[in-house]
Design a protein around this nucleic acid. Structure first.
Length: 502
RNA sequence: CGGGGCAUGGCGCAGUCUGGUAGCGCACCUGGUUUGGGACCAGGGGGUCGCAAGUUCGAAUCUUGCUGCCCCGACCA
């Protein structure tokens, strides 16, 4: 932040640039024309553009949901201007949707890094050869989008990356001393689903974080699995939802140890059955020591000892052993899936390391997926009301909407801009609604896009030295002195950062 | 891929049965009055009615074929 700048960061002269809030991930600062402050006859009044001024932002909200949207998250994502459908199961991400997805991605990234995984980036397009080596080129079926390039080479749009990561591993790793190793990336995948549906919940193109672990033996590989397991618990906890690990079928990826993580939501796709104890189990906190195999194994054991299965894996006999008053059945959305699959890829593809005894052995592998694009929809399914979305702190596109009830009124504008500066200085990411819409429209829009707080500033309140603060989740409104409201927001921000900020 | 449905301006819809050359609400533009929970008045712009062929003097409307999208099922992060 430039220190000696006057409080009005949006000064009309446009003479000075402000250092952009680090949390803004948008386009570089540039000169734009502020249509709000422009007169009708001369709209080209250049000024410093701030992207988080709503009149300069791109937030195409809809009053009515398009007919094709059936489920609530799809409807709300369309209404809140987060996405635009381009074809069945294929979406453009508009600014608000992109911002949320990036925040989710960042939480996932931080927790992967914390658990010892190392980020890479593999391409979306892969050569068919690798898949012929593993035998999956023929097995994967029509879900894999096959492409022929200009040289008549068989290519494909990657539905997953086991083959490619195995290729990278075998090219660079020779010794058991380089293990354990866990590489992950966050990249777009394409699966040509027979029937895409529910918006980005089951799209054909989707963003996935996929991690791959490499270990010398099964015990070490299981320890790697447990670390990812623990990091998933932390990831979803930080995202403000309860995700319960459930024993899963291994599916086409194969393997013999697998769990799905399901967010509980009334509108979830699958029916789940679990022991009530899961709803109050402690999630490992930020001090978790991933180098302590025993501690991590205990987390795994604590989170898997009681019954928890989806309808597909449901076992009535085992379920009957759960005391009736401890049984909970609910709906869930799968947001993560982890597999241990041993040497399924390393053996056929020759990914071996030399062990301490001098013998080459194929590495033990596991893979670990979370779909950030799906998590966006899943969070909405889990957290919404009749007025719109209710974002958790970590995924919220903005922390607070500053609602100017009389845009153009000098004192009100100044108060809003002053609040904006104080909040950004404190680290918050506010959205300043400086449009000249009516109050009702602004409130409805702020509710719809689900920003945690609304700071409502108007001339009537200012005359009494008051502003209003509304909490989105509860709907509670308080009339406060501006300083008190700002202090409350910054205190909230500090507390949330402490609790969910990683 | 099996079953069902839909396709008319940016969004939501009427008009189709019973053919006569397209309408409503929201949104958008202009002017004015407004402004603390989705304002009002006046004026205005925007649609080859998914595509193609056919029937007819005439097709959004009838016939045939195709395409796209949505829902249920099988499949899946």
């Amino acid at each position: 932040m430039v220190k000696d700048q006057k409080a009005d960061g949006f000064n009309r002269s446009g003479a000075s640039f402000r250092v952009q809030n680090a949390s803004c991930l948008d386009a570089p600062h540039c000169l734009r024309f502020d249509r709000h402050q422009a007169t009708r006859n001369s709209p080209f009044v250049p000024k410093v553009w701030h992207p988080m001024r709503l009149s300069n932002y791109f937030l195409p909200v809809l009053k009515e949901a398009p007919r094709e949207a059936e489920i609530i998250s799809h409807q709300l994502m369309l209404r809140a201007g987060m996405i635009r459908q381009q074809a069945a199961g294929i979406y453009s991400w508009l600014p608000l949707g992109l911002k949320v997805m990036r925040k989710i991605e960042q939480v996932v990234r931080e927790e992967q890094n914390r658990a010892g995984a190392v980020e890479v980036l593999m391409p979306t397009i892969q050569p068919a050869e690798l898949w012929k080596e593993s035998g999956r080129y023929d097995d994967y079926g029509k879900e894999m989008l096959r492409i022929i390039d200009r040289h008549e080479r068989d290519m494909l749009f990657g539905p997953t990356n086991e083959e490619m990561i195995t290729d990278i591993f075998r090219a660079h790793v020779r010794s058991y001393k380089d293990l354990p190793l866990n590489l992950y990336h966050i990249q777009w995948k394409f699966r040509d689903e027979v029937r895409p549906r529910f918006g980005v919940m089951r799209g054909r193109e989707f963003l996935m974080k996929d991690a791959y672990s490499f270990d010398l033996d099964i015990d070490a590989s299981k320890a790697a699995y447990y670390r990812m397991f623990a990091s998933y618990l932390r990831t979803f906890d930080r995202l403000g939802v309860t995700a319960i690990p459930m024993r899963a079928d291994t599916g086409p990826i194969g393997g013999d140890l697998s769990h799905e993580f399901l967010i509980l939501a009334d509108t979830g796709e699958s029916e789940v059955f679990c022991h009530a104890g899961y709803l109050s189990l402690d999630v490992p906190d930020a001090s978790v020591d991933y180098s302590d195999d025993a501690a991590i194994a205990k987390i795994f054991s604590d989170w898997t000892s009681a019954y928890a299965r989806t309808d597909e894996m449901h076992d009535e006999a085992l379920w009957a052993e759960v005391p009736t008053d401890e049984q909970r059945s609910a709906r869930g959305i799968e947001v993560g899936h982890i597999f241990h699959f041993g040497t399924k890829y390393s053996a056929p593809m020759g990914a071996t390391v030399t062990g301490p005894d001098g013998k080459d052995v194929p590495v033990q592998m596991g893979s670990y997926g979370i779909g950030p694009s799906r998590v966006v929809a899943a969070l909405i399914e889990a957290r919404h009301d009749e007025n719109g979305i209710i974002w958790p702190f970590s995924a919220a596109p903005f922390h607070v909407a500053i609602i100017n009830l009389r845009a153009g009124d000098e004192a009100t504008d100044a108060a809003c801009v002053g609040a904006y500066d104080k909040l950004t200085t404190a680290g918050l990411d506010p959205l300043y609604d400086d449009t000249d819409e009516r109050a009702g429209g602004k409130f409805a829009r702020a509710d719809l896009i689900g920003v945690p707080w609304q700071l409502i500033i108007g001339p009537r309140g200012l005359k009494e030295g008051e502003v209003e603060l509304k909490e989105r989740a509860t709907g509670e409104r308080e009339t406060l002195a501006p300083e008190v409201a700002l202090n409350k927001l910054t205190a909230w921000f500090d507390e949330m950062t402490e609790r969910y900020g990683g």
